[in-house]
Design a protein around this nucleic acid. Structure first.
Lengths: 168, 168
DNA sequence: GTTGGAAAGTCAACAAAGCTGACATATAAT
DNA sequence: ATTATATGTCAGCTTTGTTGACTTTCCAAC
């Protein structure tokens, strides 16, 4: 069956050999290597790693987020996150403010220096993603996003969703 | 512009806001979490980790491959791979045979026990990918694969390609 | 044929970043 | 007053990456 006819009848059964699935699995592995390669290069020149990148990214994404919130998104233990956060705060990239309504909480913000690092990292990552998107066209991008969403755990889809503007 | 018209005119300019790209980046992060979750769960019950999974996967994929070959594919140092390989050999999951033409090389093979573990891990991972593919349809899968290919480093695309049957 | 360099693999030691468990503190909720 | 929650910290362990030093083997130039 041709790709077009399959696409136009999305309720059709999709026959997938183990070989095809394995190719998808390997593509995911190699693509993720590429996806992290540029930020990793930048980070390794400083004393930081991928864990710092993730923290900085999501603090930028959701300024004022709490530690607990971040834990849920990143899926690591508080001890692990705390190590990273402590160095970022010490180095003046992240600011931690005691909550106004609930003083137990710490709200996290990027400083100017933190925002600068975030921009540097995400510029590199965005450039790669933009180039990939350009190579393949809008239709492929839609499919890409759809598969990624379907591959997440359900609770992660919710978290991912909560970070977008328009979300059911 | 509608998705259809964009798809049918793939030479059209693709306008992408930073926000859209960031959503793609985050989707990649969350999807990779899901992608590795099932094998990770299985592995953590044994004394193994993700690195063992990768080694077992690619030895199964290309039986008789050399250590050096595997290094290139995985993108780690030989010392790092060697540790993983040593435990797999000690535990009787992988067999290492001295090269016949070049005695410096070691050719790697899965034992029956190794193949059994590989099957267990890849069954879980394939099930998730199959489910995701089913949810979105054939057209989306094509787009997904296209974006992944475009996001790899060039040399990785070659390696990935070398592992397929039909390749230019 | 010998020799010197390159390549494949191994051993040792260290670093990043994950984990568990125990515990302290401050605050909120009941 | 008591209990639960949010956060931070210490200690110690595991996985998996790194570099540097070393052996064995191969090959090519002399």
């Amino acid at each position: 069956m041709s790709e077009r006819s399959a696409a136009q009848h999305s309720d059709m059964l999709l026959f997938l050999t183990d070989e095809q699935l394995r190719q998808g699995i390997e593509a995911m592995f190699f693509a993720y290597q590429g996806f992290t390669a540029d930020p990793d290069r930048i980070l390794s020149e400083m004393a930081y790693g991928r864990a710092h990148h993730r923290a900085v990214h999501f603090i930028n994404r959701a300024p004022g987020t709490t530690v607990n919130n971040l834990l849920g998104i990143l899926g690591v233990t508080k001890q692990s996150l705390n190590r990273v956060l402590r160095t970022l705060i010490e180095d003046g990239l992240v600011e931690s403010k005691v909550g106004r309504t609930d003083k137990r909480e710490r709200h996290l913000f990027l400083t100017d220096a933190g925002a600068e690092l975030e921009r540097k990292l995400s510029d590199a990552q965005r450039a790669r993603m933009r180039a990939a998107y350009r190579d393949v066209g809008a239709e492929a991008v839609t499919g890409f996003r759809a598969v990624l969403e379907a591959m997440m755990d359900k609770d992660m889809r919710r978290k991912s969703c909560a970070l977008k503007e328009s979300c059911t």
